[in-house]
């Protein structure tokens, strides 16, 4: 008789940053675990495992989702976007560039989740007010106190994207 863990194990197909992936893992494995330990995508970070800090935020079909508690079985057939899907240091997304322009961070541990949430916001609202940005980021914690720089960075990225400035 197979062990209980193997009964729920199956090959799951989904895309991560527009690349098709097939993962052989128990369905109740966390998406965070799969991203980091199966796919080597380390920008999605563990902070609490409780949906309380936002360090692990990714997009599932464009909507912010906590990867720490999201079972990988639930993303089968869906599109997952992580910070690595936005850009790289040499080819940054306007959000990443704006965060550097504003020096929006200290230790930086919270930033990848925050940038991902900000992308979801700007995708649905290209011209958000300060209050809209605060509301979108309020589920994220930053312990170093870089909040105001982060808010300015999102505003700057939104303006850059509206102006169609290349990344």
């Amino acid at each position: 008789m197979p062990a209980p863990a193997e009964e729920t194990s199956m090959v799951l197909a989904f895309t991560v940053n527009d690349v098709a992936q097939q993962i052989d893992a128990p369905q109740d494995t966390s998406l965070l675990d799969v991203l980091r330990n199966h796919l080597g995508l380390m920008g999605t970070r563990y902070g609490c495992g409780l949906e309380q800090c936002g360090c692990c935020m990714v997009l599932v079909d464009g909507e912010p989702a906590y990867a720490c508690t999201r079972e990988v079985g639930t993303v089968a057939g869906r599109a997952v976007t992580t910070i690595e899907g936005l850009g790289t240091p040499t080819n940054p997304h306007p959000l990443q560039r704006a965060f550097l322009d504003e020096q929006a961070g200290q230790c930086g541990y919270c930033l990848s989740g925050i940038v991902v949430s900000a992308k979801a916001l700007l995708d649905r609202n290209p011209n958000p007010s300060r209050a809209d940005i605060v509301a979108a980021l309020d589920k994220h914690l930053c312990r170093c106190g870089a909040h105001l720089r982060i808010l300015r960075a999102v505003e700057r990225a939104a303006a850059d994207m509206r102006a169609g400035r290349p990344a």
Binding site: G40, M42, G43, I83, E84, F99, Q103, G105, C107
Partner: peptide, 22 residues
């Protein structure tokens, strides 16, 4: 001069921490 932090680009892009080393 306000030189941009050297460590920040990696931190908004992907692996950057001890936690990320495998």
């Amino acid at each position: 001069r306000s030189i941009p932090r050297l460590d920040l680009p990696a931190k908004v892009s992907g692996a950057a921490f001890l936690h990320d080393v495998r």
